[in-house]
Amino acid sequence: MLEQEVKELIIEALQLEDIGVDDIDTDAPLFVEGLGLDSIDALELGVALQQKYGISLSADAEDTRRHFASVRALAAMVVSLRKK
């Protein structure tokens, strides 16, 4: 399942040693509350997503913010971008 892969990628790319896949809620926010990621984490995660899935992320900050809202949103973004 893609959402599971995205969770694994988040843990690996951001070196979150104390967090397991089951600790990440698919619909919880990734930034501030929820997982508590910051802008540096977003950059690292964006690069990891591009490398793993061969996608190109939009420079539009509003789109990016929406796509990085949760694991479910990231998985949906990957699916939509891989079809292009």
Rank of each mutant, 00 (worst) to 15 (best):
G36D: 07
G36T: 08
G36R: 05
G36F: 08
G36W: 10
G36A: 08
G36M: 09
L37G: 03
D38E: 11
D38P: 06
D38M: 06
S39T: 05
S39L: 01
S39D: 02
I40E: 10
I40S: 13
I40T: 15
A42V: 01
L43G: 14
L43A: 12
L45N: 02
L45M: 09
L45Y: 03
L45Q: 06
L45P: 02
L45I: 01
G46V: 15
V47D: 08
V47Y: 10
A48I: 05
A48Y: 03
A48V: 03
A48H: 06
L49D: 02
L49W: 00
L49H: 00
Q50C: 11
Q50L: 04
Q50A: 12
Q50S: 14
Q51V: 09
Q51C: 02
Q51Y: 04
Q51M: 08
K52Q: 15
K52I: 05
K52H: 14
Y53K: 09
Y53A: 09
G54I: 15
G54A: 12
G54K: 14
I55R: 10
I55P: 00
I55V: 15
I55N: 09
I55Y: 11
S56N: 06
S56C: 01
L57I: 15
L57Q: 13
L57H: 12
L57V: 14
L57W: 11
S58M: 05
S58K: 03
S58I: 04
A59F: 09
A59V: 13
A59L: 13
A59D: 15
A59R: 13
A59C: 07
D60P: 05
D60R: 07
D60L: 04
D60V: 04
D60T: 05
A61I: 12
A61M: 11
A61C: 01
A61Y: 08
A61L: 12
E62I: 05
E62P: 00
E62G: 03
D63E: 14
D63Y: 06
D63S: 13
D63R: 10
D63H: 09
D63T: 08
T64F: 10
T64E: 05
T64Y: 07
T64N: 04
T64P: 00
T64M: 10
R65E: 10
R65F: 10
R66E: 14
R66W: 06
H67Q: 14
H67A: 13
F68T: 03
F68Q: 01
F68I: 09
F68C: 03
F68S: 01
A69L: 06
S70L: 10
S70A: 15
S70T: 15
S70K: 01
S70W: 03
S70M: 10
S70Y: 00
S70V: 02
S70Q: 07
S70E: 03
V71R: 00
V71F: 04
V71S: 02
V71T: 03
R72S: 14
R72E: 13
R72G: 09
R72C: 05
A73H: 14
A73T: 15
A73E: 15
A73Q: 14
A73C: 11
L74A: 01
L74C: 13
L74P: 00
L74E: 02
A75Y: 06
A75R: 02
A75D: 03
A75P: 00
A75I: 02
A76N: 08
A76C: 02
A76K: 08
A76S: 11
A76M: 05
A76L: 06
A76T: 10
